[in-house]
Structures are given as structure tokens and as C-alpha cells.
Nucleic acid binder design. Structure first.
Length: 334
DNA sequence: CCTGACAGCCCGGGAGAAACCA
DNA sequence: TGGTTTCTCCCGGGCTGTCAGG
């Protein structure tokens, strides 16, 4: 049934990116000046999840590395490295300067100086989920470093610009913005067919089932591949020789919640507790929420910290907080 | 009643200095 | 003296209490 599980993994980067020709070309031409030793404008890739933003960025950086002999690159996920220090540290890491900078006592500003003083080859950095960056002014500082080219990735353009200062805002206006729309069904179908061809035994899934996956995925390639993977596994486990539309229908919710679960797994234990409590209610007031949290947590943190967690969860778009003061309610994200 | 902003505390851990020992 | 261990200090990050403001 499954001949190559790798291509069913969401992280698998195909050799060619499909159906993103316009976006690839746009980003590619934005980066072209590097090949002439010039400094490109920063790029901002935005659009919903599962539409190939990260994929295209990584693909093009790889291409660029083949075209330019001397080029440093780094990928930073700002969800994980959300502080100014961590992001800078990873950027230093990308130019192999860690050994000299390894001393923790180095103030954050020295990290920036180190980066500024770097006079090696051009440095292209991908800042994924950049809207999760705590201190957006870092972008302004990075913007001014010569030789450093930024590719910013964000789900929503708006989320990035709202809490960005005026200085940075004016800088980012001449960033090249590239919008990624959701995939159309036929595009998802051909993406799936590619994976099917490489990952599954022949004749295990027919066109109508693939169509069903595409429809259920609603434009999100990650969901589509997730559905395919789960369906293939279940079929294999049941020793079935075909993936039916019934099976697709059955595993779709599982695949969707699997992706959501991955997001939740990135939360800290206390944040998870709050998230779950809120999801057990249609809406909940702050005080009952705090009480429930105190009950459930082994060593509950202070009221103050709970508010920190909640604003973080809201920032992650995992919950919705509505009402500003007395009428405050927390609700699960739609 | 609830929030965001702010200052300050504590901790784990790395680095350099100091102390110690052969 | 040279090498090793201990001490001390500093940093970032998690956490907390306070306070003004809606």
C-alpha cells in the first residue's frame, strides 16, 4: 500500500513547487539582485496556512544557493524563537559565529553589533511566523544591516502591521509583498496525485477519492496531505487494498484535529490547561476561568501570569477575547 | 471587575576570576 | 608554574505585585 512514507510527510519539500509559478517568479525576481552583488528589498509572504509560503521561500533560497557561490542562509521560526535574543542568536548561528558568541553574558545589543559587523557573503534569512515576534523593532534593526536580506512570512499581513511602530511601518512599505491565495481544488488534486504516484502502490486510490480529499481540505495543502496520509495508514492497517471515499470522509476530521493538536503541543503545560478549559465552554468569564485553572493545575501560577498566558493564547489565535473590561469573555477560536 | 504597562525578584546556566593543589 | 576546581557575577526569561485606567 504505502511505498514511500516520506512523501506523505507534511515537511517533505518537493523538488519543484507546483502551482505557485507567479509567486515563485515574483520572489525570485525580488532576490535576483543578490546574484549581482546588490541588496534586494525585503520580501513579505502572506496568506492562509498550508498554501506553500514556507515551502516557496525555502525552495528559492536553495535555488539561490546553487546560483551564488558564496551565500549564507538561515531559517528562523519566530514562534519558537520569539524573543529578540533568541532570534538574534539563531541568526548569528547561521553565519557560524556561535563559537565566539557562546558566552551568555553577551548583552543582546552585542549580538546585533556582531551581526552588523559581519562582512562575509550575502546573508538571506527567512523569518517564519514573524507576527509572533515579541519585539518587532528587531525587524527595523535587521532592515538596516547591509548584506542581510529578509524574507518575512506571516499568516496575516494585518497581524504584522498593527503592532509595528511608525518607523518600521514606513520601512516595510517598500517591502515586496507577495500574497499566497488558497489552492483551488484542481491544484490540490494534482499535488495529491504527485504524492500518490511516489508514495502509494498503483491503483490504491481513484480520482473521485482524490477529488473528495481536495474538497475536504478547503484549499489547504497540509490538510490535504494529512488526510491522504491518515487514509493510507488506516487502509493499510485494515488490510484494505483501496482507499475509498467513505474512508476519506471518516479520517477528514481526524486529520484536521491532528494539525490543530500540533499547534497545541507547542504550548506550555499551563497554557494548555487554559486552552482546554476555554474549549470546554462556549464562553467563560475571567473569574470562573481562573478558578477552574487553579483547580486543575498542580502548582497554579498567579493571577497575573494567567493573564500573560491568555494574551499569548489570543495572540496565537487559539482563543478569542472579547469585551474590554467588565464584560470580558473568553471563547474558543472559531 | 478586569486589563495592560511597568519594575523588580529569582532561577539556571555560562564565563571569567580567584583560589587551590600538585 | 600549570592545571583544575570553586566562586562570583551577569544575563535572559519566567514570574509576581502594583498601579492607573476603563
Amino acid at each position: 500500500m504505502i511505498t514511500d512514507a516520506r512523501v506523505l510527510q507534511p515537511k517533505f519539500i518537493p523538488r519543484e513547487v507546483q502551482h505557485r509559478d507567479a509567486e515563485v517568479n515574483h520572489l525570485s525576481s525580488t532576490l535576483t539582485p543578490i546574484t549581482n552583488g546588490e541588496q534586494p528589498d525585503p520580501a513579505l509572504l502572506h496568506g492562509p496556512s498550508g498554501v506553500g509560503k514556507t515551502c516557496v521561500a525555502q525552495y528559492l533560497v536553495e535555488q539561490l544557493q546553487e546560483a551564488v557561490i558564496d551565500l549564507d542562509t538561515q531559517y528562523v521560526n519566530c514562534w519558537e524563537d520569539y524573543s529578540r535574543f533568541k532570534t538574534l542568536y539563531r541568526l548569528i548561528d547561521g553565519i557560524q559565529q556561535t563559537a565566539t558568541i557562546h558566552r551568555q553574558s553577551t548583552p543582546t545589543d552585542h549580538l546585533l553589533e556582531r551581526l552588523r559587523d559581519y562582512n562575509g557573503p550575502p546573508y538571506v534569512v527567512i523569518l517564519d511566523e514573524v507576527d509572533q515576534l515579541e519585539d518587532k523593532s528587531l525587524l527595523y534593526d535587521l532592515y538596516r544591516i547591509r548584506n542581510l536580506t529578509m524574507i518575512l512570512i506571516s499568516n496575516s499581513e494585518q497581524a504584522l502591521f498593527t503592532d509595528v511602530g511608525e518607523r518600521l511601518n514606513s520601512r516595510l512599505t517598500n517591502a515586496v509583498r507577495i500574497h499566497f491565495r488558497a489552492y483551488h481544488d484542481p491544484e490540490l488534486v494534482s499535488i495529491l496525485q504527485d504524492r500518490v504516484q511516489w508514495g502509494l502502490a498503483p491503483d490504491t486510490i481513484d480520482d473521485s477519492a482524490i477529488n473528495a480529499i481536495a474538497t475536504n481540505a478547503a484549499g489547504d495543502a497540509r490538510v490535504a496531505i494529512g488526510i491522504l496520509r491518515r487514509a493510507a495508514r488506516q487502509a493499510r492497517d485494515q488490510s484494505a487494498d483501496r482507499i475509498t471515499e467513505d474512508l476519506i470522509r471518516k479520517v477528514t476530521p481526524e486529520a484536521k484535529s491532528e494539525i490543530e493538536q500540533k499547534t497545541i503541543d507547542r504550548l506550555k503545560p499551563h497554557q494548555k490547561i487554559l486552552y482546554h478549559i476555554i474549549n470546554e465552554h462556549d464562553e467563560i468569564k475571567p473569574q470562573p476561568l481562573y478558578d477552574a485553572y487553579r483547580n486543575r493545575a498542580n502548582e497554579p501560577n498567579s493571577h497575573r501570569m494567567v493573564r500573560n498566558y491568555l494574551s499569548k493564547l489570543e495572540h496565537y489565535n487559539l482563543i478569542v477575547a472579547e469585551g474590554n473590561t467588565k464584560g470580558r469573555r473568553y471563547r474558543p477560536a472559531p
